[in-house]
Every structure is written in structure tokens, then in C-alpha cells.
Design a protein around this nucleic acid. Structure first.
Lengths: 181, 181
DNA sequence: TCCAATATGAAGCGGAGCTTCCGGTTCCGA
DNA sequence: TCGGAACCGGAAGCTCCGCTTCATATTGGA
């Protein structure tokens, strides 16, 4: 592969990821190309169709996210802190894209599996946080995951935006407040 | 106006409102007609185009919402309770539609005015709640409005769903907890 | 009974976005 | 430096989807 081609391929992936993270899945191929400073033709040289590009980004993102989450979970720190680390780590990721792929008409199996992997892991951590006493116990762990998803899958979500702050505070007990920096 | 026509007009408005509330602004004219048990032609006899139907629903909804909010605000009860009344009252309303109209390319002036009227009123109430001590003081009232909007403008939002609960709890101080039933 | 008002839904239309394709350009080894 | 294979650009074509129209059938009501 020629050097410029390698460079452009990476540029396309970066650009597309940023756009999907900022504005959700409804970004056109033309806008991706234009933002990257390339022609549409170049996109199609590297990715045979839109679907392929979207899946590649979603799978990459989810793989990294899952392994980061597992790494956080293995740390010997309060579970509440693990949750905060995870939520912060989600900022700038195109998670609305990933979710829309697994919800949409074309369920790529790998995307669905990765999502359910992440969800399961976070649900376990939430349950442990409840036992630890840092999280309110009256919400089933699976619903905690749903609520956090809303905070974290919004296009343009930031780690420290008001909604995320409010939701985290709404999930924690006063005991958990101490663990939160 | 003939009796069946009057009936169908009301049926269309009801059906469209429910669909927009449940699934957001991206509901097609055909689906509205089908759900109402009518042909598309009948929609176009009552509303010359999609835009007209959407604006009518948005303006109706916002007018009612604003006057309800004003009525709540006039009650001699704690401001936190007014906020809860308001949030509960928003359930089942097509607010995502209204917001998308005022954000979208066709800004109907009346929709924008009504929205800013509601936002202003809620911001004032939030400020009073902060002075009253029932709401955390570290979030500017305008951002409180933004956060509540996210809870309340979701398609399919319910008054008692988990997200709404968590956000309200995240917004209130322990002092405010007493005012909340 | 009669007709004006109303309802129907298939066909027409338009736009937005995906995809193709070929002439022009650029890299890179010899 | 040169040749050619790899690569890029972007206009044109295509397809899909949802809005809108309209000729025909139906119905309320005097």
C-alpha cells in the first residue's frame, strides 16, 4: 500500500469517527470526504460501501471500549470510581452510531455482541457499587446501564457536561459522594 | 363542515400527536393516515401539507403547556413541587417535534416564541428553587432547563421513567428531598 | 332522491444520499 | 529521470423514500 493511501485511510477513519461522535450516525459520505479534504471516490477506494465503513468504526470503538472497561474493572479501587472512569472514557466516542447499528435493520452480529458485553460488564459493576453502598439501590443494574447509555450515547456528549454530572449525582448515594473527586 | 369531516380532523390530530410523542418528528404522513385508519388523501384535505400539520400540533401543544406551567407557577406551593408538576405534565407530549421545528431549517416564529416562553418560565422557577434551597445551586438555571429538556423531549418519555427520576434526584438537594412526594 | 362534500390510494414527483467511473495526478522503484 | 501502477477527484447516474396530487368512489344530510 502506498504511503499516501495509508495516510488517507487513517484520515478517513479519524474524520468519520469525529463526525459520528459529534453528530450521530446521520452523516453523509460526502460530508465525511469533504471534511477530510478528499473526494468521495477516495472513500470508496478504501471502503466498498457506507455499511462497511460504519461497521469498521463501530467494531473498533467497541473493542477498545470493552477492553478499557475491563482494565478499569480490574483496578483495586471503589466501584463508583470505576463507573466514573468508564463514563469519562466514553466522551468523544461514536456510541450513538454503534447503538443505531445494533438497533437498526442490519444487525451486525459482532456489534451486538460487543454492546451486550459492555452492558453486562457495566451492569455487574453497578451491582457491586450498590453493594458497596456508593450507588442508590432502588434501580436495577440493567436500568442503570440504560440511563448511563443515554448520557453517554448522545452525539456531542462530553465527560464533564451538565447532563452527565446530574445523572451521576442522581445515581449516587451520599456515601458515594466521598468517593467522587 | 360535515360531521364525519370534523370527526376525522380530530382523529388525525390525536393520532399524529400520539405518534410524534412516541417516536419523534420522523413519522411519515402515510403512517399517520394508516394509524388513523384513513387514506393519505384525507390528511391532505384537512392539512394542505406536512408543515402545516406539524406546526399546528406544535403550537397547540406549546400553548397548552405554557398556560399549564403558568398555572402551576401561580400555586402557593414550594418551587420544587412546581417543577415536578411541570415535568410530569410533559409526559406524552410531542416536545421533540416542537424542538426540532424550532431548531430545523424552517423556524416558525410562533413555535420559537412559545418555546422561549416556556424555557424562560422554567428557568425562573429553577432560580427560585435554588433560592428556596430545594435545588442544587451550582448549575445555572438555563442549564437546568437544558437538562430537563433532555429528559422531557425524548420520544416516548414517561413521567415516572428512570431517567427522569435520576435527573430530578440529581438536581435536588437533600433539603429538597422532603418536598418531593 | 340527489348532490356537494368528503374519502381513497395508486401514481407522480422531487430531493437527498449512495455509488460508479474515467480522466487526471502522484508516488516510487529502477 | 522515467514509466507505470496505484491512487485521487468529483460530476453523473441511480435508487430509495416520503410528500403531494388527482381521478374516482363513497357518503352525509337536506
Amino acid at each position: 500500500m502506498r504511503a499516501d493511501a495509508r495516510h488517507n485511510r487513517a484520515l478517513i477513519l479519524d474524520t468519520a469517527l469525529s463526525l459520528f461522535a459529534a453528530r450521530g450516525p446521520a452523516v453523509s459520505m460526502e460530508e465525511i470526504a469533504q471534511t477530510a479534504g478528499l473526494g468521495v471516490g477516495t472513500l470508496y477506494r478504501h471502503f466498498p460501501d457506507r455499511r462497511t465503513l460504519l461497521e469498521q468504526i463501530a467494531v473498533d470503538t467497541l473493542r477498545r471500549l470493552l477492553s478499557a472497561a475491563q482494565e478499569f474493572a480490574d483496578r483495586p479501587v471503589p466501584r463508583w470510581e470505576v463507573l466514573m472512569l468508564f463514563v469519562r472514557h466514553c466522551a468523544g466516542l461514536p456510541l450513538a452510531l454503534a447503538k443505531s447499528l445494533s438497533d437498526g435493520p442490519s444487525h451486525p452480529p459482532e456489534v451486538a455482541e460487543l454492546i451486550s458485553g459492555v452492558d453486562g460488564l457495566i451492569a455487574r459493576i453497578a451491582e457491586q457499587a450498590q453493594r458497596e453502598g456508593s450507588m442508590r439501590p432502588d434501580i436495577p443494574p440493567r436500568e442503570v446501564v440504560d440511563v448511563l447509555s443515554i448520557a453517554v450515547c448522545r452525539p456531542g456528549a462530553r465527560a464533564d457536561d451538565t447532563l452527565t454530572t446530574v445523572i451521576l449525582d442522581g445515581l449516587k448515594t451520599s456515601a458515594g459522594a466521598d468517593a467522587a473527586p
